[in-house]
Amino acid sequence: MSLLKETQKDSSIKNIDNNILAITESYLKEFVAPVASEINQSSEALNEALQGLIKRSLLSIKVPKAWGGLEADTETFYHFQQLISQYSGALAFLQVQHQGAVASIVYSNNEALKEQYLSKIVEGKLLCGLGFSQLRRKGKPMITATPMNGGYEINGTVPWITGFGFFDAFLLGASLPDGQTIRAMVPFQNSHQDAGGEFLVSEPMKLGAMQSTNTVTGTFKNWFLPSENVVSMAKEGAIHENDKKIVLFPSFLVLGCAKAGLDIVKKVAQTKQLDFINEGFNHLNEELNYCQEKIQTAITINSRSFEDDLKLRVWAINLAQRCANAAVIVSSGAANYYNHAAQRVYKEALVFTVFGQTTDIMKATLEQMVYN
């Protein structure tokens, strides 16, 4: 049997900053890969890995150079995301929350807030998370913002906030009485205000995967939010429109997970010397390269359709699931060990399957599984 095919590099992507990606991959291979299972289970290990990204200025990858950031282009940023998820899903999941919050600040019209946050973010002195997934839910708003003198009174519950103990603040999404929504920065800590308002955080949830990321629920009661903390305001339903625009981009995290599964298959193939494992790897690797090529090309096209983007996202999800399953299969009974790489990647595939899930993605993912 011929040697295993290596993952092909797409030379058609000309804008990528290879220096940033080389620094990232070198760090991940040397310091993250050897302890990936521990990072998935231990908040202390995850924090150490996160600090490694900070020391290399990689958490300011999308911050403009005018603010001291790296200001990487779109292609570089998404390949960066893919690299991290290939070596540690927990680290990828945690840092992407921060990157999302930072992007919102960068594009905000609140210049005073930019002054307050961006320089600290670049210096590694401040990290941010996200708390607005509840805006996707239909029916009665889970978080309300009632206008009052100088700001808003916040009430309700944020069901998911990742990064307690890691992040200093998070981007809150809340609904106004007229249906519009605001996003604003809120300190990520239990707090009691002099006027009686409070924000309380639950104990970290017991999750089946990425427990180390400390995902919690946050509850507001008559909590005062100053107007100067508002990052942006949007019309009712804007989050659903935006979800359609960005449906393709999380595919890079998913592709990284697929690559992680194939890395395991490749390693097993080299030790067990079974032709059918080589053949399985080559088949999945060829499909993964083709899927990645299609997605890389798609993000450079401005006139893409939502339907085409959705198909590519679902394809990537299906590939990650199959590659993770392949890793389990070739690892045999050893995959049952809680700290086995195949066990970790299998669970990471679960997380990335439902990451940023909308009804459209759920429907398309299920249909792909049932009918294809």
Rank of each mutant, 00 (worst) to 15 (best):
L118C: 04
G68K: 02
G261R: 02
L83W: 09
S119Y: 04
I246G: 09
E44Y: 08
A320C: 06
E279K: 15
K266C: 11
M210W: 07
N282L: 03
S332D: 15
L225G: 03
A234F: 09
E307M: 09
Y87M: 05
L83G: 02
V230L: 12
Q211N: 08
V106A: 02
L58D: 02
R136N: 12
R344N: 09
K235M: 12
S88L: 06
Q270V: 03
G256E: 03
L207H: 06
F249W: 12
F355Y: 15
L366V: 13
T271C: 10
A45W: 01
S227D: 09
E115V: 05
G237W: 12
A184I: 06
V216I: 15
Y27K: 00
F220P: 03
K9N: 08
A145K: 01
L70I: 15
L207G: 01
K65P: 07
Q296D: 15
T144G: 05
N289S: 07
L58A: 05
A92V: 05
A341I: 03
S2L: 12
M233Y: 08
V63C: 04
S212W: 01
M233T: 14
N336A: 09
S37M: 08
M1K: 09
D178L: 10
A334T: 00
L171A: 04
T271S: 15
I143L: 08
G173K: 03
S26V: 10
S104Q: 13
S175E: 12
N155H: 02
I105Y: 05
K5R: 15
E123T: 06
L113Q: 10
S227A: 13
E367W: 10
G151L: 11
L4Y: 01
A169P: 00
F166P: 02
I295E: 06
Y290E: 13
N285P: 01
D360W: 10
F276W: 07
L253W: 09
S303N: 14
A327S: 14
T144L: 04
E48K: 15
Y338S: 05
F170H: 09
N40V: 00
A326N: 02
L130R: 11
S119W: 01
G280V: 06
S332R: 14
L91E: 03
D10N: 14
Q357H: 00
E367T: 07
K138W: 00
L127F: 11
L176A: 05
D194P: 09
Q134R: 04
V247R: 03
A90C: 08
K363L: 07
W67D: 11
L28A: 04
K363T: 14
A66T: 12
V158H: 03
W315Q: 13
Y290N: 12
V254E: 06
N285S: 14
K114N: 10
S88C: 04
K5W: 04
R344V: 15
G52R: 05
H240I: 10
T74W: 12
S212D: 07
D275K: 14
Y338E: 13
G237I: 04
D243N: 07
S332A: 15
L284C: 09
G150N: 11
G156W: 03
L312Q: 13
K5C: 12
C257L: 12
E44P: 00
T353Y: 06
V247D: 04
E203F: 03
E111I: 12
L225A: 01
N47W: 07
I295A: 10
L284F: 13
A184M: 11
S212Q: 08
K9D: 10
